[in-house]
Design a protein around this nucleic acid. Structure first.
Ligand SMILES: [Mn+2]
Ligand SMILES: [Mn+2]
Ligand SMILES: [Zn+2]
Ligand SMILES: [Zn+2]
Lengths: 140, 140
DNA sequence: TGCTAATCAACAAGTCGTGCTAACTAGCAA
DNA sequence: TTGCTAGTTAGCACGACTTGTTGATTAGCA
């Protein structure tokens, strides 16, 4: 994702108004590695800006997604998570606490076999599931 | 997944009754590589057994899932898909028509880098997205 | 300053899946 | 064959997540 300042410029270029709500969401996403849901982002936003609506958070996230500034990650466990990291990367998920971390995989274009003659792969998503160090400590 | 005959025995052992509805679902899943949703499975089932309820299809799929006879795959695009193939395998998905095929990946335990000290990986899911041969033909 | 986009509250709706009830059916064990 | 009980069904509701709508108010920006 671009910096909040760059996003402000980008939004103005596109004819979108630069509102305090949008700017707040830019800042909350900047460098955010928590892979938040719209709901959790809204909760954090509401502390700094009581009155902001969940609807607006969803709306702004959709705009950022359409601009390619955030990606949305569906781990199949409830709400979609948003990720300002749009590098080519993958994720590890703790089955116990749900924490999500970025991982970078070497040999990304893997070889595979199957009944997939002529299939053109455009993207690859890998999710590693397991137990994070923190949860391993607690259960030990 | 076990054969329908084996599932009949398995269900009886577990004290589950072997109903025509359950047997039909066993047969429809046997060798099924379509990765159907509960809804699509229901539609096929209803042709052979008008009156079967979607509720029962969901119920039986849950039972099979709990027994480890089918896995459910959430591709993040609508309903969960059910897979009688419980081998360690992955999937390719056509972004255009939504078809899902099995793929087998060598070097399954990939190396990765990231802020994941002490993370114990239990499973890895890979989804390749792109365009299938059929859709490539149509768009050419 | 004024046009218009954006926001808000409030409510609805759509999708996917599950829960519940009440009545009926039927599997299976004795 | 009988009888207990699990299973099925229709019908309705609900919960989570997300988007749509409407109508009033606010405020960005040319
Ligand atoms: Mn990420
Ligand atoms: Mn499969
Ligand atoms: Zn954890
Ligand atoms: Zn296709």
């Amino acid at each position: 994702m671009k910096t909040p300042e760059e996003l402000v410029a980008r939004f103005r270029e596109q004819g979108y108004k630069v509102t305090p709500q949008r700017q707040l969401i830019f800042r909350l996403l900047d460098g955010n590695t928590a892979h938040p849901t719209a709901e959790t982002l809204y909760e954090v936003a509401a502390k700094q800006m009581p009155g902001i609506s969940l609807r607006t958070v969803y709306q702004t996230l959709s705009e950022l997604s359409a601009m390619g500034e955030v990606q949305h990650i569906d781990l199949g466990s409830g709400a979609v998570r948003f990720d300002p990291n749009v590098d080519d990367h993958h994720h590890v998920v703790c089955s116990t606490c749900g924490v999500v971390h970025d991982v970078y995989v070497n040999q990304t274009p893997l070889q595979f076999e199957g009944d997939v003659e002529g299939f053109a792969v455009h993207s690859t998503r890998i999710v590693f599931s397991g137990e994070c160090a923190h949860c391993a400590h607690l259960s030990a």
